[in-house]
Amino acid sequence: MSETKTVENDRSGHPTPEHAAFADAAGGYFTPVAVAFTAVLLISNVCVAKGVQFFTGHHVSLGPITVLPLTMDGAFFLFPIAYVIGDILSEVYGFRATRRIVYYGFGALLLMIICFQVVIKLPGNDNQNSQSFADVLGHTPQLAFAGIAGYFVGQFLNSVTLVLIKEKTKEKHLWARLLGSTVAGEVGDTFVFCSIAATAIGINTWGDYINYTIVGFVWKTLVEMCVLPISYRCIAFLKKREPSYRPRERSAIYE
């Protein structure tokens, strides 16, 4: 006696695919999206060297937590964009493709830091300009390591969380995948980066550290929520125009 397999249908009456759908990471729109991701990563890791504060004329505390002034780094408006693009890569092209871009981004970031250090060591004909160059682009080993470690942990958590949720939900509940992956990625990224880089950007008290960590996480998550409509449109655009977008076996997603 043969077993009868029940096939679920979606709202339109079509059979629900057994596995989540992804596009091939070759040709199409994959390259420009990957380039945009890497560009934002590199620029943000230059801007992060500057610590910034908002509402410096006010001081509000809740126990050990400093509410005001808000302490952030100069890349506060760029890191959320990197996660938005990372979500688009993971949702449309899958974990394997996103992991490859994470490796490429790591290599580009490491090359950028090495090149800056080489140029700083070269003899200059203007001591003032040379010192200014070193002050802006001379990432300390502490800050460079913080950026690389936070980037690795955050992007991997972001991508794998999104793909795992997508395996369960298929094409439904995109908002849950985007927000869930962002929370996972931002928790890992913010905690790792802030823990390593805090003193390098002028954060020397527990109150400022807790403020910096919480504000960084909340800010990045709020940005993700605010740009959900844009993320939806970008993802819909790519899914519609990538002819290879189709369900994939689970092993093909992660290997």
Rank of each mutant, 00 (worst) to 15 (best):
G107P: 09
F95E: 03
S90E: 12
P123E: 04
I85L: 15
L122Y: 00
F106K: 13
D126A: 05
G86C: 02
F106H: 13
F77N: 11
Y83R: 14
I88G: 02
P141Y: 09
C115I: 05
I120K: 12
G74S: 11
S132E: 05
F133K: 06
V119K: 07
T140M: 09
I101N: 01
A97S: 14
P80C: 14
P80G: 13
I101K: 00
A75K: 02
Q131H: 04
G107L: 08
A82C: 14
A134H: 04
Q131K: 11
R96L: 13
G138V: 06
F76N: 12
R100I: 14
N127P: 01
G74L: 09
M112R: 14
V84Y: 09
V84D: 00
V119C: 10
P123T: 01
Y83A: 11
A134S: 15
A134N: 04
Y104A: 14
Y83M: 15
I101Y: 03
A82M: 15
P80N: 13
F79P: 02
Q131E: 09
R100V: 12
M112I: 06
I120N: 08
G105K: 02
Y103Q: 10
G107S: 10
N125Q: 09
G124Y: 01
M72N: 04
T98M: 08
F133A: 00
A75G: 09
A134D: 05
V118P: 00
S130A: 01
L78V: 13
F106W: 13
P80E: 10
T140Q: 07
L78Y: 13
V136F: 14
Q131V: 03
Q131T: 04
L111C: 02
A75P: 03
V92D: 05
F133R: 09
K121Q: 08
L137S: 02
F133P: 01
R96K: 15
V119H: 06
L137N: 07
I114F: 08
L137D: 05
